[in-house]
């Protein structure tokens, strides 16, 4: 927060990325680094968007596919990048189609998310930004991933049917 304030006249900066044909963004300060999709080890009994665990320079972190999580069809011919995010002190790898740019939006271009009747929970969308006729949705990552995933993982662990071999 402080960095943004010091360097950029009270405006928070965001990292935008593509999920399929759509564009999303997360606060830049939550981003530790962006890497290419590494080899990862799948973890059984986790939801399908939970790809597994990966080795980030000696640290084992979870890696999740944000596209699958949000139900977005992956784009074709995209490079597939992993954004390493810092969520409450823990790192998590988030798979996206491609990382685009750093946004420094004017407050005037930001708006609240419209109230939409929808079956999907949208509480992880923190705002909407219009730029050159493009619509960019701002995400609260820990809400869209971590907390909910926690429950999801636990659930799928409990649900596993007792199958004696």
């Amino acid at each position: 927060m402080n960095h943004a304030k010091n360097t950029n006249s009270n405006r928070e900066r965001f990292l935008s990325f593509s999920l399929g044909t759509e564009e999303y963004a997360v606060p830049l300060l939550a981003v530790r680094e962006v890497i290419a999709l590494p080899e990862y080890t799948p973890v059984p009994y986790t939801p399908s968007y939970f790809l597994g665990i990966m080795n980030l320079r000696g640290q084992v972190i979870s890696i999740m596919d944000l596209r699958q999580k949000l139900g977005i069809k992956p784009g074709v011919d995209t490079e597939t990048a992993v954004i390493i995010c810092d969520l409450n002190g823990a790192s998590i790898g988030v798979v996206v189609d491609s990382v685009n740019t750093v946004l420094n939006p004017e407050t005037a271009d930001l708006s609240e998310k419209p109230e939409i009747q929808s079956n999907r929970p949208t509480d992880y969308i923190t705002g909407v930004y219009r730029k050159d006729k493009k619509l960019i949705l701002f995400l609260d990552l820990s809400r869209s991933l971590s907390l909910e995933d926690h429950a999801a993982v636990r659930k799928s662990a409990e649900v596993r049917a007792p199958k004696a071999a």
Binding site: F50, V60, S62, H150, V153
Partner: peptide, 13 residues
Amino acid sequence: KEVGQEIQSLKWM
């Protein structure tokens, strides 16, 4: 190596 919180509920791991 510890794993992330999001999968620590998996007791068998």
